[in-house]
Simulated assay, not measured.
Amino acid sequence: MFNNDFSRVALSMLGALVFTFTAVGAAVGPARLVETTPVVYAGTASNAAVAA
């Protein structure tokens, strides 16, 4: 009885960790990508406004 309960608790904890890492990765990945990509459109927009 104890082994069965312990294995279920261990399996649910492992599943919770996998779910947490997946959810955090899905939330942090795009935000990190936005932070690290250089801003290119600001330079082209200011050049277009000067040329017009």
Rank of each mutant, 00 (worst) to 15 (best):
N3R: 09
T22R: 01
A31N: 01
A26V: 15
M1L: 09
G25S: 10
L14G: 05
F6P: 04
S7C: 02
F2Q: 05
G15L: 03
G25D: 14
G29K: 13
M13T: 11
A49Q: 15
A23H: 09
S12C: 05
M13R: 08
A10G: 02
L17D: 00
M1A: 04
R8Y: 09
V40P: 12
A48F: 15
L17E: 01
G43V: 00
Y41H: 01
F19M: 05
A31L: 02
A45C: 05
T20G: 07
S46P: 11
A26I: 15
T37H: 01
A31V: 01
F19P: 00
A45E: 12
F6Y: 10
R32S: 00
L14K: 10
L14W: 06
F2M: 03
S7D: 06
N4H: 08
G43Q: 01
R8A: 01
A48G: 14
A45W: 10
V24S: 08
V18L: 13
L11I: 15
V34W: 08
V28N: 08
P30I: 07
A31K: 03
L33W: 12
L11N: 13
A52Q: 07
L11Y: 15
A49H: 15
D5H: 10
S12V: 13
N4S: 15
A52M: 05
T36D: 10
V40R: 07
A16F: 14
G25N: 11
V24R: 00
S46K: 04
V24Q: 08
A42G: 02
V40S: 03
G15A: 03
D5E: 09
F19T: 03
A26W: 15
A45V: 07
L17C: 10
T37M: 02
F6I: 10
A23N: 07
D5Q: 04
V28C: 06
A45G: 07
G43K: 00
G25F: 13
D5F: 14
T44C: 11
T36M: 14
R8K: 05
A45Y: 10
A51N: 13
V40T: 14
A27M: 01
P30M: 06
E35M: 06
P30Y: 11
D5L: 13
A42F: 09
V50Q: 01
T44M: 13
T20A: 13
V34P: 00
L33D: 02
F19A: 14
D5W: 11
A10V: 07
N47S: 12
E35Q: 04
R32V: 00
L33R: 14
T22C: 08
N47K: 12
